[in-house]
């Protein structure tokens, strides 16, 4: 059991952090929501009701979509774009999808390679891009989820103020939707760019997110 935990410590710790932060968000979110309800002469809702509310759903999903967009973009951008000296980039000579030999596919697959790396055709094509396909799908689903939950919220607000409701497509055209979306995107893009640039000159000993401490600044893509 202890060995199992150690072998999965990275995913276990982040899973625990995620759950703890989500619980914290839900507790604070319910209180904020109820405060607002009372200020507007409405009634508060229970914690369990809040967990399945559009208010909580849109707050969760607007952050999810931007995180998955960030990684999806980073995964695909680093195939083609480089930053000289960065740990997050591959060397200038490797730009593109790389050779079958280097990618260990088809006849170059090894004994223990995944079976989808061995086959030819659509199966391999899909497997070669499976990470971006899944990350982009999660992004799109979360963004759609954000739009429908925030739309419900928006209309509840409209009704409360005696204004008319809008359709889902109408909501996509409102500044509310784009402000919620872009405020998350801007921070993700800045963070990705920062990682690409900071890892040229800064180091974290022992981290695969950094070059080795003694690696020269102009050395590109060599995790320590």
């Amino acid at each position: 059991m202890r060995l199992w935990a150690r072998h999965n410590s990275l995913s276990l710790v982040f899973l625990a952090l995620f759950i703890a932060a989500l619980i914290g968000q839900s507790i604070a979110g319910q209180r904020a929501f109820n405060e607002q309800q009372l200020q507007h002469g409405g009634e508060g809702i229970s914690y369990t009701r809040y967990l399945v509310s559009s208010h909580f759903g849109s707050a969760v999903l607007e952050n999810w979509q931007s995180e998955y967009l960030q990684f999806a973009l980073f995964i695909v951008a680093t195939v083609w774009l480089i930053q000289r000296g960065s740990n997050e980039s591959k060397p200038p000579g490797d730009v593109g999808r790389e050779s079958d030999h280097k990618q260990l596919v088809g006849p170059h697959a090894q004994r223990n390679s995944p079976s989808w790396a061995r086959v030819e055709g659509l199966g391999r094509r899909l497997y070669e891009n499976s990470l971006i396909i899944v990350m982009a799908t999660i992004f799109l689903a979360a963004w759609f989820g954000q739009s429908v939950t925030a739309w419900t919220e928006y209309n509840a607000d409209q009704r409360e103020h005696g204004a008319s409701s809008v359709s889902w497509l109408g909501y996509l055209d409102r500044p509310d939707f784009w402000e919620k979306t872009l405020q998350n995107w801007q921070s993700e893009f800045l963070a990705v760019g920062t990682m690409a640039v900071f890892t040229i000159y800064l180091r974290q000993r022992g981290s695969p997110e950094s070059k080795p401490v003694g690696a020269p600044h102009d050395q590109t893509g060599t995790s320590g």
């Binding site: 199992w4 995913s11 759903g57 689903a141 989820g145 939950t149």
Partner: peptide
């Protein structure tokens, strides 16, 4: 291999459950 599969499955199930739940919540008011 089993342990890695377990972690993979936990993350997939968690993400899928969250997405399905809140898309359903959003669409429930249609």
């Amino acid at each position: 291999v089993t342990q890695m599969r377990t972690m993979f499955a936990v993350y997939v199930v968690l993400i899928a459950a969250g997405l399905v739940l809140y898309i359903t919540v959003g669409l429930a008011h249609l």
